[in-house]
């Protein structure tokens, strides 16, 4: 399968549905944006999602708990799971962000280069192989993850708690990809 044009460059994202006009935002919508982080105030993606302020608020909390929660699976593996899910779904925007985070944490440009070039079937080191295979199988609709994927992760030293952390990251990006892919599209970043 040919790959979309994946990149680790910083991209913008343009909404295809009318965002909330911030001049008319309710106090609750302002609060939800502020709680989602400083980037949310300037992001068209958040300005769109804040149409449903409570759904955005709870989703942002869940996202942070899954991706940044202490201990458990190393953050690099969570980011690799997110990146593989995003590659499988063809989400260029999500892939750019999470491949970049993975690179910052794991310092393995070879892994990202291989995934961008050949997709999830690319040759990978054993641990990354097990994580990527599990993530791709869980990303599929319906999910096709099975005992072999779990066994491969255990052979790389992952506990059940670690595997659950990976599953949460992949599942979170099944959600994120479906928002990013359907409600707008990536654009080259504007130069400030």
């Amino acid at each position: 399968m040919s790959q979309p044009l994946f990149t680790t460059e910083v991209l913008d994202w343009a909404p295809a549905v009318e965002p909330v006009d911030l001049d008319k935002a309710t106090p609750d919508q302002w609060a939800a944006l502020q709680e989602s982080g400083p980037h949310a105030l300037k992001s068209a993606y958040y300005h769109l999602l804040v149409h449903d302020a409570e759904a955005l608020r709870q989703r942002s909390r869940l996202y942070n708990a899954i991706m940044y929660g202490p201990k458990g699976l190393p953050r690099a593996d969570r980011e690799l799971g997110a990146a593989v899910e995003s590659i499988e779904n063809g989400c260029v925007y999500c892939t750019s962000v999470h491949a970049r985070f993975y690179l910052q944490l794991a310092k393995r440009p070879d892994v990202i280069e291989a995934l961008f070039r050949d997709g999830v079937s690319a040759p990978l080191p054993p641990r990354e192989r097990a994580v990527a295979d599990y993530a791709a199988a869980l990303a599929a609709t319906p999910p096709r993850v099975d005992e072999r994927h779990v066994r491969a992760l255990r052979e790389q030293g992952l506990s059940d708690e670690d595997i659950a952390d990976l599953a949460n990251s992949v599942a979170m990006f099944a959600w994120a990809n479906r928002l990013m892919l359907t409600l707008g599209e990536p654009r080259p970043a504007a130069l400030d």
């Binding site: 999602l49 449903d52 759904a55 955005l56 989703r59 869980l138 609709t141 319906p142 999910p143 599953a167 992949v170 599942a171 979170m172 099944a174 959600w175 994120a176 479906r178 928002l179 359907t182 409600l183």
Partner: peptide, 12 residues
């Protein structure tokens, strides 16, 4: 869209 995404999350 949030429901579509959430149930995709929940199923996984």
């Amino acid at each position: 869209s949030q429901i579509l995404g959430f149930v995709a999350y929940q199923a996984r």
